[in-house]
Design a protein around this nucleic acid. Structure first.
Lengths: 334, 334
DNA sequence: ACGGCGTATTTTAACGATATTGTCTGCGAA
DNA sequence: TTCGCAGACAATATCGTTAAAATACGCCGT
């Protein structure tokens, strides 16, 4: 590897002069500067960022740690990247495979020290595990789980989104709406918060809440959703609407309904959550709760930036508002 | 920050003893070890990886540099991650926004020095620009563009995949097949290689090749595909099949066809390329060329690993085989 | 001619970890 | 008693860079 001292020797100057030429900290005489630049060019020198990071105590890099690079997270990441770069920092992604052990490793203080700040999308860690993470590094948590109070946290208005979607289908005539991929858990989780919204919509409309219509699925994949919904259909439980906890689940539902000859929205209305790009293209267009990626990204990066700039003060817990995008999978959609 | 020397002071030993306890290089007496571990625990010490990286000259980290975190790249990344981790290294992703300037920055030798190896998904850089990248760091290129000979490179059998898909639709009765999202370029690019496969299938079947059926699109988005296809329909050009250059494009085509009341596959057969997960769930299931992510990932990581282990020898240029997955969007699919 | 000042450049000392070499202690063998 | 040697630990040098302090050099005014 070519180092500064190689360049210095080649140019017949000290390493500090090389550093000063390259970083323009102290002024360097024109002839000397020219010799240094020539040597840099000749040897193909590039600064060693590891050394600079050690010396500077900063890396000008932010990590976004996500469970997988798929779908929702990919879309959020694409929103976050330019915001981080606007602050003159780099963004890198790390993956945890939604596995609590991997997440703990990712947030091990050792790993964190490589970054000036971390956006951690929490999927596998519960509050108890998270509270064991002690570090002075700025961290902002993203995700739908409960987290310890002392972390900055951005989450979605899950309940409200689910309520919007369900109320919309009720208004358009559905009376038996599955909550596909939701759960009856009492703790705050994505799947239970969204189920609560589904319940609230029923109560608001004076409709009974039937727990048989809450249908959990094994994994959050389209395939699991498809086979689970096929089971529901086979069981004979009557339904005329589906609130899918995520668009990935909605997609599996679309496939299952089509394979059983059920028409959307005439036989069954369908609404999802996440407003993935594909959702507007899958005929007849899937009505979906838009999670407001841009807003989430802005809040998260904003909070992180404030902490990195040394901002103190109590942790903030942001609930980002969501909105319903109506498409052809519910009646009245275009 | 808590450093080794803080721990050393707390435990009343030298820093080397702390290092030896933590890394188990030289043996340390049991009582001393216990004191050190207690001090580590008490102070919450974690190793500073930046310092270790500088000293070791390695980072045990591989970067995957992609144009965006969407769709295809997200899926490839999820395949690559476990393979890299199996070699005891970390994987991080960086994003270039398919922008040549960003790509050049990403491969600036400075940035590379943070990693032991780099997988670079080339979207914006042409061979001439790439050949200016001089570094001794192991780099493996991914992607469908031509690259300088001295780089290891993994690409797909684009032409063969397109030929398979097109021949399949011809066999099932299509006679006027659009090449949507393809181009007439003569240089090797994804869009032109796939167009060549479309041509070859026609010639193999003794059918004429009509260049009016090659329909480029402005951006590789579903939305652009949809509006472009709507224009084609409006133009009155008759067609009974579509080979879409990517599944993202196929998805836009599905939406356009549905909105014009054209039935897939009865009125128009449709086949895509990439076999995205969604493609098997969008009714009636999109026939697609499977790009063999797993194989690509294995080749790429294998090549990189060999180079990182010091393997010399000429650069390899791998063309990963692809296969056709037949679904309901072509006749005879399930 | 000389003190003083400003600019150009070098020297020194870190950043935090670790490979290498060096010191000390105690014990067994001659 | 003396030497050698092994085990346990410490001191030093180093990775490549940069902040801060030190030096060298010319030039000015008096």
């Amino acid at each position: 590897m070519v180092t500064m001292s190689d360049v210095a020797r080649e140019a017949g100057v000290s390493v500090m002069t090389v550093s000063n030429v390259l970083n323009e900290r102290l002024p360097v005489g024109a002839p000397t500067r020219a010799r240094v630049l020539a040597a840099v060019e000749a040897l193909g020198y590039e600064v060693n960022l590891t050394a600079r990071h050690l010396r500077a105590g900063r890396t000008d890099t932010v990590a976004l740690i996500v469970p997988s690079f798929h779908d929702y997270f990919g879309e959020v990441a694409d929103q976050i990247a330019p915001l981080v770069e606007a602050h003159g920092r780099h963004l890198v992604l790390e993956r945890t495979s939604a596995n609590a052990q991997h997440e703990m490793e990712a947030v091990s203080v050792a790993r964190l020290q490589l970054y000036d700040g971390v956006l951690l999308s929490v999927a596998g860690l519960d509050p108890e595990q998270l509270s064991r993470v002690r570090t002075s590094k700025p961290i902002v948590l993203l995700g739908e789980r409960d987290v310890p109070d002392h972390f900055d946290h951005v989450r979605l208005a899950n309940e409200e989104g689910a309520r919007l979607a369900t109320a919309h289908m009720i208004e358009r005539g559905s009376r038996r709406i599955l909550a596909l991929g939701c759960t009856l858990d009492q703790t705050h989780m994505m799947t239970s918060d969204r189920r609560v919204g589904w319940e609230v919509a029923h109560r608001d409309a004076g409709l009974p809440v039937d727990e048989r219509y809450v249908v959990p699925i094994a994994t959050y994949s389209s395939e699991a959703a498809r086979s689970t919904l096929l089971d529901v259909i086979a069981s004979g439980l009557p339904f005329d609407g589906i609130f899918a906890a995520t668009d990935v689940i909605a997609l599996g539902a679309v496939a299952a309904l089509a394979s059983r000859g059920l028409h959307v929205p005439d036989d069954v209305q369908l609404a999802g959550f996440d407003n993935l790009e594909v959702s507007s293209f899958v005929p007849p267009g899937i009505t979906s709760v838009d999670p407001n990626h841009r807003g989430v990204a802005q809040h998260a990066v904003g909070l992180l930036h404030r902490r990195m700039a040394g901002g103190a003060g109590p942790a903030e817990h942001v609930v980002a508002p969501v909105s319903l995008v109506v498409r052809g999978s519910t009646r009245g959609g275009r």
